[in-house]
């Protein structure tokens, strides 16, 4: 708005000057309006495809709760499905995706395929944090039905933390095994907390987490199976690790900052 205020001021000043003769003021106003409209042209958006069917509910098929670096593509696409009242997939329903500014969808909308699904590739915004995405469709009475999906964008510090997690922590703290990494979780008599376990970890302060990581479990009367990492990881490494743990915890940790949602 402020961008044009100078022109408005000018218009007003000239208007006074010319007293009852409005011709100049009129000309300037026209000019200003032209200028304003030419500057604030909106990007054209492609017309929405016409839905051939309407569902009753929209559910997440896959792709929620992923982590990616700020601004970059999520590793997997997000797939949502539109169902009718009986829970059967609906083909040809229109699904639109929306989120906070900065998040991009490819595509931003689409008609459900023969299995009732729409797939979109998502790049998260430039701020680290939790992003709430909305997938919406219209039901038979043309009411909006919404689904909220959460994804997590990692900033520099959290990315560093994730790297350290992969190298040192994950093999015990992540109960899932992959082809590359067999989990040690089940082999431990005292089970470590998976880092997504927000219910427990959110209650432990940063200072306590730092103490446990630096001096091992016994520092806070926890299991000795958690070794001390204070001589292996630097202080900033441990901070990075904690910021990663806060970023991925579920339910979200308050210290991870705001949730970015559609406004």
């Amino acid at each position: 708005m402020t961008r044009y205020s100078l022109t408005h001021v000018g218009t007003a000043a000239l208007g006074c000057l010319a007293e009852r003769t409005s011709a100049i003021a009129l000309a300037v106003a026209v000019l200003a309006t032209l200028l304003a409209t030419s500057c604030s042209r909106k990007p054209e958006s492609a017309p929405l495809p016409k839905p051939t069917a309407f569902g009753a509910a929209i559910i997440e098929s896959s792709g929620g709760k992923q982590t990616a670096q700020t601004g970059s593509l999520l590793p997997q696409p997000v797939v949502v499905q539109v169902n009718d009242e009986q829970g059967t997939a609906v083909t040809g329903a229109l699904v639109e995706f929306a989120a906070a500014p900065g998040v991009t969808f490819d595509p931003t909308n689409g008609l459900t395929d023969s299995s009732g699904q729409v797939t979109t590739n998502i790049s998260l915004g430039g701020m680290a944090g939790r992003y709430q995405l909305t997938a919406s469709t219209l039901d038979k009475s043309h009411k909006n039905v919404e689904l909220k999906i959460e994804e997590i964008a990692l900033g520099y510090q959290q990315t560093l933390g994730r790297h350290l997690n992969d190298q040192y922590c994950e093999r015990c703290h992540n109960p899932e095994s992959t082809v590359q990494r067999v989990s040690n979780f089940d082999n431990l008599d005292v089970k470590p907390h998976p880092f997504t376990e927000g219910d427990t970890l959110n209650k432990i302060s940063d200072a306590d987490l730092t103490a446990i990581i630096s001096h091992g479990g016994p520092a806070l009367n926890k299991s000795a199976l958690m070794p001390a990492w204070g001589n292996t990881l630097s202080k900033s490494d441990i901070q990075a690790l904690i910021s990663y743990i806060r970023a991925i915890s579920d339910p979200p940790s308050r210290s991870a900052g705001p949730v970015y949602a559609k406004n």
């Binding site: 670096q69 601004g71 970059s72 593509l73 790049s123 430039g126 990315t159 560093l160 790297h163 350290l164």
Partner: peptide, 23 residues
């Protein structure tokens, strides 16, 4: 620079790989 390319900035000075710049 769009956020997704921000790591290119690190690469201007850092010529080797860094743990914080996987991309």
């Amino acid at each position: 620079l769009p956020a997704k390319y921000i790591e290119s900035a690190c690469g201007q000075c850092h010529r080797g790989s860094l743990p914080g710049t996987p991309q």
